[in-house]
Design a protein around this nucleic acid. Structure first.
Lengths: 190, 190
DNA sequence: GTCTATACTAGGATAGAC
DNA sequence: GTCTATCCTAGTATAGAC
């Protein structure tokens, strides 16, 4: 398990980048060793339970990022909803490097094994969904419409990442994010 | 390479199911052997170049399906556009088993290796995109709007599949397909 | 906390009989 | 065209020195 987060952040960030590029099965200890510059056994020192442990640490790290950088700011009623939304878009763009980086969600194919990790991801998804729903309700949308809009927003993120990965058209993701911006502004002016 | 398609269809279909469930790296020859009931060496008889060859056959098979069952009907101007669209939705639902089955696109993480396969998939994507664009233009939408709608439609499919896989909420995919139906009807009544 | 060295297994692939 | 048997490498993981 990865304690002392402060020291290990860079390490986990490197692991994160590999897992999102190669998926779980496609990620090998050798590759992790190569990229981090640590020998395999050193990696096992940090993560005694091996690869799955490393993934857990990564997912936990991403979870933290989502809560701190996306969900908390979304719920912070001190700034205007439109500002919070556009800040989120900016954060997302950076997080996915304008669509050039994958989302762990669509690259990990976690079956019934690894249910624990899947649960973590699902919780994050739900929290994000709730925050978005909140925000749009705040702007005057009905509960019903708000939930549907929020769900579709997250669906579009995932879908755009998948399609951009396929087409190597570097604009797919950004275009969708712009579209979502416009949609949100329509909400404001209703 | 898989010739004599008529005989091999069931075999390839079985391979397809495994690849879409486990991804490329997650699919092992042993698993393929187990599920198909053929010994490993028998698989190699059908696909001398091994796993990558099997994937190629699967992707080719899926490509054929898409062209025959989705793209051709979409472009067949003998039936009404709205009918063609709703037929497509039905076909898609069946193909993804109402969102319970993955799309190869989001489960395969093909890097620069396997560029050939990626190209095949990209071609299919483009063909599908074009057919959708055609259809919506036929219904009176502007070229610009048509392209954007078509792209978003395919993005939503991929995204919905990813999210449904995560949440095990069995309605995510169907809900999005219903939404798209409604959207298309709005086009008709403009 | 990092290293070298090594053990072990599973995965990919082939040989050759039937 | 399917099988049994086998090879080889790559992948996971551990032991133990420094």
């Amino acid at each position: 398990m990865a304690q002392q987060a402060s020291d290990n952040t860079m390490l986990i960030d490197a692991l994160f980048d590999i897992f999102r590029n190669h998926g779980y099965e496609g990620t090998t200890i050798s590759l992790l060793s190569e990229v981090t510059g640590l020998q395999k056994s050193s990696l096992y020192h940090h993560f005694p339970a091996g690869k799955e442990d490393m993934l857990k640490a990564v997912v936990g790290y991403v979870s933290l990022q989502i809560h701190q950088n996306i969900i908390a700011p979304l719920l912070n009623t001190q700034s205007k909803p439109e500002k919070r939304f556009s800040n989120m878009i900016a954060t997302i763009k950076a997080f996915y490097n304008d669509g050039r980086k994958n989302c762990l969600l669509n690259v990990l194919n976690l079956g019934e094994a690894k249910a624990e990790i899947k649960k973590l991801q699902n919780d994050d998804y739900c929290a994000w969904l709730d925050a978005l729903t909140q925000l749009s309700i705040e702007v005057g949308i009905s509960q019903q419409e708000a939930t549907e809009w929020a769900e579709r927003f997250l669906i579009v993120i995932e879908g755009a990442l998948v399609i951009q990965r396929l087409t190597s058209n570097k604009q797919v993701f950004e275009k969708q994010m712009e579209y979502e911006q416009k949609q949100f502004h329509k909400f404001l002016n209703q």
